[in-house]
């Protein structure tokens, strides 16, 4: 593999944003994901190569550490920040169609619930895995999810909730979405949830971690041959 791609992956994994960033101390004064991505484009690497062989492996590595409790939310956020900075260089290529997202996922915390940390983290991890994430924010009603699905045919939906009481709002949202969009796949997650609840309300996937959710999304992509 091209060594600059390995360095980009290392920057994302370790949350090294740019040259000025003091984090991580072991990479102080070195180029970050920002400068290296610009360099890689100048060297003639394609945006797809940078995404598939640099950024995504970096996010996968930190995601694996996170799922094994060898990294924590602050480290994940720094990795996501490094990834986002690099993605700014690739945005024009997404706009022109030179590279494509793996798919679109609409995420949101369900009505009555303002908790956003878990949702944000999962969203960042999905973006880092090559998915376009449309984040509807918090306290999202069924109507807003329906509008977003209408605007993004073929998308997947992810619902988040923190409390026993607010997760009950997932049931009606899932029902309304499924009635309207029969083939729509819906992921659910959040502190009080479990597989039994997911099955009972008719959602398609329950995940304890963002890694599991990404594996599920990628399996959908494989199944549809996108």
């Amino acid at each position: 593999m091209n060594s600059i791609l390995e360095r980009i992956a290392a920057c994302v994994e370790n949350g090294k944003v740019n040259m000025k960033s003091p984090y991580p101390p072991s990479m102080r004064g070195q180029e970050g994901a920002d400068e290296l991505t610009a360099e890689a484009l100048k060297e003639g690497l394609t945006p797809t190569e940078i995404l598939d062989l640099g950024l995504i492996p970096g996010m996968n590595a930190i995601g694996l550490k996170f799922s094994e409790n060898r990294a924590f939310v602050p480290e994940m956020l720094m990795a996501a920040k490094a990834m986002s900075t690099a993605m700014l260089h690739l945005k024009p290529y997404f706009a022109s169609g030179d590279i494509e997202y793996k798919g679109v996922i609409v995420i949101g915390t369900v009505s009555g619930d303002l908790h956003d940390i878990g949702k944000n983290l999962v969203g960042m991890a999905m973006e880092g895995a090559g998915w376009r994430v449309i984040d509807l924010g918090v306290d999202v009603s069924a109507g807003r999810f329906i509008s977003a699905v209408e605007e993004n045919p073929g998308c997947v939906v992810g619902l988040s909730a923190l409390l026993t009481t607010t997760m009950l709002n997932m049931e009606s949202i899932v029902r309304e979405l499924k009635e309207r969009f029969g083939m729509l796949k819906i992921l659910v997650g959040g502190a009080p949830l479990n597989q039994e609840f997911c099955t009972r309300i008719g959602a398609d996937y329950y995940g304890r971690s963002s890694q599991g959710a990404i594996a599920y999304l990628n399996s959908l992509q494989d199944a549809t041959g996108q």
Binding site: L114, D116, L163
Partner: peptide
């Protein structure tokens, strides 16, 4: 803003 939960952000 307070509903059944609050945002930590």
């Amino acid at each position: 803003e307070k509903k059944e939960t609050v945002s930590l952000n």
